[in-house]
Design a binder for these strands. Structure first.
Lengths: 258, 258
DNA sequence: TAGTGGTCTAGACCACATG
DNA sequence: ATGTGGTCTAGACCACTAT
């Protein structure tokens, strides 16, 4: 079965059972790639159950243990979620665990909560140079920019501005954002088919500019936490730039070093 | 072999091959615990090679695959480091990778570097109430407190104050800290046998108090990044409280969301 | 050449969820 | 009762490191 196996994955490179050229990656890595393709292409959408390990093993012509190792790693990367007795599912931003991986704002006392959002602006525009560079867009390619305030119990806490490639988010309007009570990333994955996977953040302390201070209802010059985020989807493709200003009097940015 | 196996690990609970009471955790979890004991007790010190998988499998009376799963998880938690062809080693803060997991300060341009340290103070003292609570010490138990400035090329960047349980760090003096050019955690693990494993951080933006501003050579009221850290060693035991103030003009706090 | 971790297989049985 | 993921075994062979 071994030679059949390998030829199933690399039809052009079949060889004797133990043949493996220098360019071959381990089978389980190849399986990871094939599963990731299914996710990227939308064949399996967030929340969907993917085929069982046995089914995938048969389909790819490898043993169940090999599929298991591939799925284990994808689960460790939070692309998949295993549920014993039920199956393996595509991770979704509708799940609270996923949401709080991308919302690090935590109350100084009490449990993490999700804030209310007020959209200030949502329009198509030309991207600033740094945003354009970060999103790997050509100069002049359109982006959609969103500006909003996040609040807890009516008290402003975050002033957020973000930029998205226009091509991926056609039809995104302020109305649609205002109607939806779901978190942004949840909306993005369900309505626009773009799933945020990971992000890099740069955190700084800055003094509040007058305009920002007014929107956040703090004194100009107050210390604010600046959080600049670059977010990636499958294949390490950058798809969101986000700049946030946080008031960290009653909340803080939480991080676990492991 | 199965019944021998289990009796080797739980001498008092041996049973038929397939017996497993409700209180039994999976074998590989038990193996994880046994290996962790070896780390915690100092049987294997940072940098040491632990016995091979086959050796451990024989010693614990389980298959190599079970040891492998245990070691895999400990490596994922950064307690161990695998090196193909060489062996498996106890992770150490002398390795750059480990150091930068706990030093998130990154230049806005260029590669991460390690700053120079100037010790301002190192003394035994009574812990403030919040520190005492965080370290789970009884009121009045002594702590060692260290105050220092970190700088890049002579330019102050971080003002750090930290508290350690006195009992674990006997003989820690300013001289010893000043002599050592190694990072603190490296010194702690090699000289005092306390290995820092993970930490929780709370990040905020604050205004510089006059005294802090003077030490950091910034204007009073300047925005500073406040980073409060509680650090744990084996067994989730808290062993360090650290409060840092960062100047984030040329550097930022970097974080990857995954 | 020998020892280490890395990959892969085949098969057994357990634990959990559901019909 | 069935199907799912979770654990465990036994053994083969590969890739890397050192002597």
């Amino acid at each position: 079965m071994n030679s059949d196996t390998r030829s199933a994955i690399h039809p052009a490179s079949a060889g004797p059972p133990t043949a493996r050229s220098a360019t071959f990656s381990p089978l389980y890595q190849q399986i990871k790639g094939l599963i990731t393709q299914g996710l990227e292409s939308g064949q399996w959408k967030p929340g969907d159950m993917i085929p069982s390990e046995i089914e995938l093993a048969g389909r790819f012509g490898v043993s169940q243990g090999t599929v298991r190792k591939a799925v284990d790693e994808l689960a460790a990367e939070h692309l998949l979620v295993r549920r014993q007795g039920k199956g393996t599912f595509v991770a979704s931003h509708t799940e609270p665990r996923t949401q709080f991986r991308f919302l690090r704002l935590t109350p100084n006392q009490g449990e993490p909560r999700y804030p209310e959002s007020t959209i200030l602006e949502c329009k198509r525009a030309r991207a600033p140079a740094d945003v354009s560079r970060a999103l790997e867009l050509k100069a002049g390619e359109p982006v959609i920019t969103i500006k909003r305030v996040l609040a807890f119990d009516g008290v402003p806490c975050v002033l957020d501005e973000l930029w998205l490639p226009g091509g991926l988010f056609k039809g995104l309007t302020a109305e649609r954002l205002t109607e939806s009570k779901a978190p942004l990333y949840s909306l993005f994955e369900s309505e626009f088919g773009t799933k945020m996977i990971r992000a890099d953040e740069q955190v700084r302390a800055v003094a509040a500019a007058p305009a920002d201070a007014r929107l956040l209802r703090v004194a100009p010059g107050s210390p604010l936490l600046s959080v600049e985020r670059l977010t990636y989807t499958y294949g390490d493709k950058p798809v969101e730039v986000r700049k946030g200003l946080y008031i960290t009097r009653d909340y803080h940015y939480h991080n676990e070093l492991i």
